[in-house]
Nucleic acid binder design. Structure first.
Lengths: 130, 130
DNA sequence: TGTCAACATAGACGTATGTCGAAGAAGGAG
DNA sequence: CTCCTTCTTCGACATACGTCTATGTTGACA
């Protein structure tokens, strides 16, 4: 790396501001705080793109749960740098992890973030309203 | 309401060929199709804003499950037209419903869309992959 | 050492998005 | 009818975002 050895992904997994949000509070239980909303929005924003959604889904359903970038680029109509950019967004959001092994860089889904999101979106009390 | 337009995810619930999107296909089970990804991204995009997340959470946790716009505007630092804009985005995404009653317009959460999203994000089979 | 392949980064460019103030539409009260 | 309140729509603006090409970095191999 040019500057430091670790990318910006540090904050995404051990975030100081994020633990409350992505922990266990159902979205529909109590009003979301301002800081929590900001952090949570970043995660949703990472998923708010068709290419990233397909990338994420593709990685998750890959054999062995891992895929190198070369496995992914062929599936899309966008250029390789664009794929790289989207992978970085997913990584910064804590949705995927990555590691370089030899020539290739492998990506995998971080199930914890995914599960937390799922829990957040679970309807508060099923069938209560409307 | 004023117009005849239907939420974006209408096709997702009536199409037999691709019921996958907002129905029951876990994101991490099989690669997401291009069309499905586009539709799904619109829903996530609707949630990818701090104000909209707080709006959504606020409506959901409101007494009675409903809130008029006047109940919401005071909670934010943005102008009332901006709130109205965000509510429209949430409504177009199928996340909330709305109805005019007299002078006021009430909004409520549509739990079905929420539940579908939650199911989509659920880790494929817990512990199966990665 | 040199060369090639796999990814990442940088800069640029067009479009989308969030925000505002001003104006419009829809009801209620008088 | 007129006035007021509530909410939506309309332009306009600055910023953020997705994409590209070009270039940089890293590792394998001869």
């Amino acid at each position: 790396m040019s500057k430091k050895e670790l990318p910006v992904l540090q904050p995404a997994q051990s975030v100081p501001g994020l633990p409350g949000v992505l922990c266990c509070t159902p979205l529909a239980r109590e009003p979301l705080g301002e800081a929590d909303a900001t952090d949570l929005a970043k995660v949703f924003k990472a998923l708010a793109d068709p290419v990233r959604l397909r990338l994420f889904s593709l990685i998750a359903s890959f054999e062995g749960g891992q895929a190198c970038v070369c496995d992914l680029t062929g599936e899309f109509d966008v250029s390789q740098p664009t794929i790289s950019h989207h992978l970085k967004v997913l990584r910064d959001a804590g949705l995927v992890g990555s590691e370089r092994r030899g020539t290739w860089v492998y990506y995998w889904v971080l199930p914890r973030t995914l599960g937390r999101l799922s829990g957040l979106l679970a309807p508060a009390e099923t069938g209560a309203l409307v």
